[in-house]
Write a protein that binds this DNA or RNA. Sequence first.
RNA 1: GGUAGCAUAGCCAAGUGGUAAGGCAUGGGUCUGCAAAACCCUGAUCCCCGGUUCAAAUCCGGGUGCUACCU
Length: 310
Amino acid sequence: MIKLLFVAGPTACGKTEYALRLAKDLGGEIVSADSMQIYKYMNIGSAKPDAEELAAVRHWLVDEIEPSEGFSVADYQSLARRYISEINSRGKLPIVSGGTGLYINSLLYDMDFPGCKGDDERRQEIWEECERDGEKLAERLRRLDSAAAEKIHPNNIKRMLRAVERLEGGEDSLAAFADVKKPAEGYDTLLIALARNREELYDRINLRVDKIIDSGLENEVRSLMAMGLTSADVAMKGIGYKEVIDAIEAGRSAEDASELIKKNTRHYARRQIIWLRRYPQLKKIKLEGDAFDEAAYASMRELIEEWLQN
RNA sequence: GGUAGCAUAGCCAAGUGGUAAGGCAUGGGUCUGCAAAACCCUGAUCCCCGGUUCAAAUCCGGGUGCUACCU
């Protein structure tokens, strides 16, 4: 059994800081569960740990791929599992830190990604075949698997496309949609979620967005654009990036996009919080104030010590 | 002081006699290959008082507040 610690929580709640401290104190290495920090060159906007932090504790799945590369949960899962066992075999504690719920989920549970891989072109094809009509797509899905069709809202084109893709790719039914959630085998997990008052979190978000913009988000976006990336690239769909690209293209500056970025980040944080509510085993640690919350950290350590004993 | 206009949910806002569109925010939620994505759900009896009418956010009178212009 590999002991696997998770430090989750919404964006801007302080994950980086606390995970780093834990890694130092426990002799751990950090496995990022962040769908944006995984990209190279996207440092400022994704609020990546800085060079000093990256040097202090070993990080995995940060700066892993090119922004132009495709990536998916399935890729994440297999890479993360590999790194985790390597860390474990070195006698270190793997600490998964990040806010991408689905990535965390892929490690926590035995999600398997069988069947066909996601193929953009294939999905595009299906979409064209349905004449870009949500209703027609829904009908096609219903014919293939009525149970799956009932679970996916007809407005959710993206999900319906993937479902059709899988079913036509050979799967008889999307049994996966049943909520069979087996804990991942081979891991002994402890899931800690950092939490804050909503108001305090939103204040932190606003502050952080201002800081990110001051630190040169616009230049970062411009250099990514110079590398040939456009708003069509997945990496550029990240919050902060997409808004600034739009602003630049409209002849405005990053500052002009500030309010929009803040709003989108708040929405994102809310969804993250809601996502985490699904885990009954979740240990919530409430953080307060801007300074490092020693009291909260101490109770975190206590939880961890107890878990490590068993 | 005068004249005109406006007053609808946290904000923007439609509706000008038949019982309150929509957008944003907020909150809640879904989630098996783009997840910082995609999608779903969520609120008011219309400034106050009186009147006309079977029926008023909608018409009339008065009050209050805001805005513009005038003196």
